[in-house]
């Protein structure tokens, strides 16, 4: 066992330093495309780190959202940026050098080093053992309606936070739609290989999404992960040039976007009236309520992420600038 611990430490050390090194190369390199590829790799390593830290739920979220969807978002935004700015050819040193005066740069660096030192000192002063809220979570898990503690926290113990979280998602799509117009989804190319790949991949993704939603009650998974995989399936369809109907105009899409937050608010109101406390589920029905909330939240999260992807890269809405 000793040897295992040693090798594991070696693995952790290497992973940690790679994360830092990657971030450094990503943020201070002169080629934006390289930065984006490094960011995707960074997300990959982060997911492995989450696994090492016994946080498989976070690893799932990172793999789908952090590395997957954010990567696709960045990649598309970069492509769009390049059509707007001719100077951005990949492979060339294309960025303006930092405008800061040399002295200012050194001041910023000095400040960063001092801040790092201070924060590191604070972190190291924390007690090496701390129960946190794990005892409280575990003792109440039986009455939460699910057996997986992360789901219990997200959907039951701190369900009110998740309600507001759904509002953030709704806001993000409202925001992207109000900042950029929403015409039809991207350009339509057809490519036989891609189409076959996507035809095979999309149903699998949807199946995996349903599986993660279902498994979330007793194992890592749940609405956020399932929803982001659903969103990824949609993004694949858009990328393959499927003529998706006009998202913004469609009433059905709006309904799907609102379903999650609306379910939360409806249930909050219902429980407020019946139980006297918002989102307080009767123990007997807690499992059903949580499954219902998670299902609708999955639909909303998936639709939102897809709409964010499509919406963030369409032309800006024509706006009058007369009275600002």
């Amino acid at each position: 066992m000793e040897a295992v611990g040693l090798w594991q430490s070696a693995f952790d050390l290497m992973l940690g330093f790679s994360l830092f090194g990657l971030a450094w190369r990503m943020l201070f390199c002169a080629d934006l495309f390289k930065s984006i590829v490094l960011f995707i790799t960074f997300g990959l390593l982060m997911a492995i780190a989450w696994v090492r830290l016994e946080a498989p739920d976070v690893a799932l979220a990172e793999a789908t959202i952090g590395a997957g969807l954010t990567g696709a978002l960045l990649m598309s935004a970069f492509a769009k940026l390049r059509t707007l700015d001719n100077s951005l050819k990949s492979g060339q040193p294309l960025l303006p050098r930092p405008r800061l005066h040399v002295i200012n740069f050194w001041i910023a660096l000095l400040f960063t080093v001092l801040l790092t030192g201070g924060l590191a000192y604070a972190v190291l002063s924390l007690p090496s053992h701390s129960p946190g809220l794990s005892d409280a979570v575990m003792s109440q898990l039986d009455s939460s309606g699910v057996t997986h503690p992360v789901t219990a926290v997200l959907l039951n113990f701190r369900g009110y936070d998740t309600l507001l979280e759904m509002a953030v998602l709704l806001l993000s799509i409202q925001s992207v739609w109000s900042m950029a117009g929403m015409s039809d989804a991207g350009e339509v190319h057809t490519s036989p290989v891609l189409n076959v790949l996507i035809q095979l991949l999309s149903p699998v993704l949807i199946l995996v999404s349903a599986y993660l939603l279902w498994v979330g009650a007793h194992a890592p998974g749940g609405a956020f992960q399932a929803g982001s995989i659903l969103g990824a399936a949609g993004v694949l369809l858009v990328l393959s040039g499927r003529p998706l109907f006009n998202l913004k105009k469609s009433w059905l899409i709006r309904l799907m976007l609102v379903a999650g937050p609306a379910a939360f608010i409806a249930l909050a109101t219902l429980t407020l009236i019946n139980e006297g406390q918002l989102l307080k589920y009767p123990v007997a029905n807690a499992a059903n309520y949580i499954l219902l909330l998670e299902t609708l939240a999955t639909v909303s999260i998936g639709t939102t992420l897809l709409a964010l992807f499509v919406g963030s890269q369409t032309e800006a809405v024509q706006q009058d600038q007369s009275h600002q």
Partner: peptide
């Protein structure tokens, strides 16, 4: 302790919204 994990999942969703 899974409470920070739940917070981080919340945070990741905020992060992707803000990035978009």
């Amino acid at each position: 302790d899974v409470v920070p994990q739940a917070m981080v999942i919340t945070g990741i969703v905020v992060a992707v919204s803000a990035t978009a």
